[in-house]
Design a protein around this nucleic acid. Structure first.
Lengths: 241, 241
DNA sequence: CCAAAAGTGTTTACAGTACACCCATGG
DNA sequence: CCATGGGTGTACTGTAAACACTTTTGG
């Protein structure tokens, strides 16, 4: 049996359905930092397979949309969060038996969203009949439920990549609001990396990287010296020495 | 129109064909170092689209094979080279218009093969009727023909990744034969990076990385001092400080 | 003995890390 | 005046980079 498509010299004779195709999905590990923890957005599955289990949001790619578009659409549809501030393709998981329904190849992404201080809504917590997702919520990555499919592996890959990328780029911008204090920035780093950093060295490195600019504004929130507010100069990740 | 699949509580009622699917291909940029140049394996397309143009080897993924398996199969089928010594998934290219036939999502890989000294055969240079590839050959990456589809973009991505990975891992093992001299190893680095390295610093770094072991053998090939032969201690890429 | 590639150390510069105190504010 | 978090500089250490001569062989 030959599974290659029929192809002729004449384009009009090309038959796109000459052989069986796998299904293609996108899945996304969407991260945020809230309440001192790194959290990932999961949805509770309402239907077979893995009904009742938690999974990464995702779904089938439509014929007329790019992969990135599909990811943003699924995020909004299944969880109600605003579009991600940063989105990066991670890896494509395509092992033959990874989905019990049929052959499914999943293009995995990870996404970053600002924390709840930014007024980011987490809507869609009531089950919706007729869609795959019954419920959506943020889970701290250090106390996760067991996940459907190979989503634990996807999430582990995403975490590794996020932690690595935080070290040599400015992606952290996507986890913060427009203006922030250096302490808030450092806290985001510490939450994601899972260990604490030296304040003087952190500030020195960040300011030397020329990715931040100071504003004339300050944040006052207690019986202590006010903190200067900073802003990222670019809303895209740039390499940091 | 709803493109989601029908899903029920009962697995037997799941219909994998309830909506239209994209096609999925794998494409691979297979590199080797030969005649002092970094070369990539290209095939000349025999059929529409881009008939007569050069392209990365690749093809449609079968329902019963993993992605890595599909890549190795296509490499052998289309070019006749032995299975790659190293294979790594690169990125998945899925823009809507990237293939004029139909919606095609391509999972791109890059591969590394040892140079011609290893006796590696490059068979399959005669056109084969009935398959996509009419001819296969190695092309130096600094003098490429124009490529079909978005393969120039894929190749550029592969090159960037290969160069980066060479710097902090031991992947170079896949471009060399079992035993080699330190000068041969350095030459591979220089060919891929495109600039020359300091001999003393290179040797110091390689030996300090503890990824090599000396053999009692030497290579003699001319009117000069013989060179000691070395071997990689692991046949998988490991991190180098 | 000559040509050709193998092999070998030291110095310098920079980046990362460790570390402790004064400052501005609200209550 | 005191509690709280904001803000600052220096010394050390290890890694990367620059740099030139001796050794072994074949012809």
């Amino acid at each position: 049996m030959d599974t290659k498509p029929q192809s002729q010299d004449n384009p009009s004779q090309y038959n796109a359905d000459a052989f069986a195709k796998p299904s293609v999905t996108v899945d996304v590990a969407a991260f945020t930092a809230r309440e001192g923890k790194l959290c990932v957005l999961l949805v509770k599955r309402g239907v077979w397979p893995f009904a009742g289990a938690w999974a990464l949001p995702g779904g089938f790619v439509r014929l007329d949309e790019d992969l990135d578009t599909a990811v943003q659409r699924e995020l909004v549809e299944e969880t109600g969060v605003a579009a991600a501030h940063y989105l990066e393709q991670l890896y494509t998981f395509g092992a033959v038996g990874r989905d019990p329904r049929t052959r499914v190849i999943s293009v995995a992404y990870y996404a970053l969203l600002p924390g709840p201080e930014s007024g980011l809504p987490l809507a869609a917590s009531e089950p919706e009949a007729g869609t795959d997702a019954a419920e959506a919520r943020w889970w701290p990555v250090d106390s996760l439920p067991s996940l459907a499919f190979d989503h634990a592996e996807i999430l582990a890959t995403a975490l590794t990549r996020l932690r690595a990328k935080l070290g040599y780029t400015s992606v952290a911008y996507a986890l913060l609001t427009e203006e922030f204090t250096l302490t808030e920035l450092q806290t985001v780093y510490e939450i994601i990396l899972g260990y604490s950093l030296d304040k003087r060295n952190f500030r020195k490195k960040m300011l030397a990287a020329e990715i931040l600019e100071g504003t004339p504004r300050q944040k006052r929130d207690g019986a202590h010296r006010p903190a200067q507010l900073f802003r990222f100069t670019k809303k895209e990740p740039v390499f940091m020495g």
